[in-house]
Simulated assay, not measured.
Amino acid sequence: MRENAVFSKEGLFRVICINAQQCSTNNQMQKQYYYYMDPYCDIYRYSYETKSQELLYQAEYVVQTYRISDKYLFYTYKLEGREKINRVNLETKEEECIYENPKADNLQIYLENGYLYIMTGENDKYAYRAAEDANFATDLEETNSFFETNDGISTDTEQNVKVGNKNVVIRRDKRAKAEMPYSYQVEGEKEYSISCFEGNEYNRSQLFQQYMIPEGKDTIIGIMNVSDNARTSVDLYQHDIKKDILFCLDIDTGESKILYDTGDNNTRIIGYDSGIIYLFKEDYKIYSHTLTGEETELMSVPHSNDIVFDWSGDYLIVRYRGSDTETGKNEDSEYNVQVLETKND
């Protein structure tokens, strides 16, 4: 892999999700604001109207996951080996621990229709819920309804995608010499290999739920960061990435193919929506690229080794910290934010 002409090998360019369809639940229902967490676990709110961000909450603990409603911030953290959930009133800043996980196993939280859902377990999965302003000590109830309407918990080896009314599991074979490292299974049907990932080139890489979306009734479109690191496939630095690919899988026929291949790590795929691929190139510019090959420059991004690309509503959000592009050292502690409206692209 040749040395990147502009991108530093220490660059970390993270993509949160493939498009707004898979955006964080913190931002799915938001019209005015975009919420994000910085590397120090402080939570910020960016206003689309004023184009400015404000510090919303300064965390005392290392935040693992968080969810935000109009009134509350919920976040998970680990203290003395136990996973816990705190609730913060965003107006009064009053904070309390509302749940301690007795299983200490894969704790996840979701907000939906005024309820906080608490999910635990990997093999044996459990779900609980209570109204977001409830007394969790007395009002928390066990429920199965969340599993009936959502994709469930994804793990290191299984990623869940809902295509129409079909639940699909994408499985990863983690063995180093696996010839067919990926397979898929529609609920209630047989398991099949994903043929476009055949061979050793992809067996160090990983697929993520937030990088895959349904398109039409029977198709999954997804992004893969092809890893060049034998030990990791998550949050890859530039020197760990061979290239990015965009693929499609027909879950009805089993046909799969690579729709776009960047060829190396000098171009990164940062999103896809309705036949348009969004690319971040070594000139620090973002382009839209159609599947027929037409390409349009959209915006420039300041040079940085720490950039996060995210999607919410009609917007592509770019967060970046000032850094020395040669040494990789971050010079700013806070992220700057740029926003691009893409609905008319």
Rank of each mutant, 00 (worst) to 15 (best):
L90C: 15
N203G: 00
P214N: 10
C41V: 07
Y184P: 06
T92A: 12
E95W: 08
G254R: 14
E255Q: 15
C97K: 00
I153V: 07
H239N: 13
N86T: 09
L298A: 05
T120C: 01
Y211Q: 12
E334F: 10
M119V: 01
D38E: 09
Y115E: 12
N113M: 12
D324E: 06
C196Q: 05
S312L: 05
D306K: 11
E297A: 12
N113T: 06
L259F: 11
V301F: 04
L107A: 10
D283L: 03
P214A: 14
Q58M: 07
R45P: 00
T65R: 11
H289A: 06
R321I: 02
Q238T: 15
T138E: 08
D252G: 09
G222S: 02
K9C: 02
T267A: 03
T76N: 02
Y211S: 10
Q238P: 08
G293Q: 01
Y184N: 03
N167I: 06
K190G: 06
R231S: 05
D264Y: 00
Y192P: 00
I251Q: 02
E189L: 03
K242C: 12
E331H: 09
A59Q: 09
D151V: 12
D173I: 11
Y110Q: 08
E54M: 10
E331N: 06
F74L: 03
G81D: 11
M37K: 10
N167H: 02
K166N: 14
D42T: 12
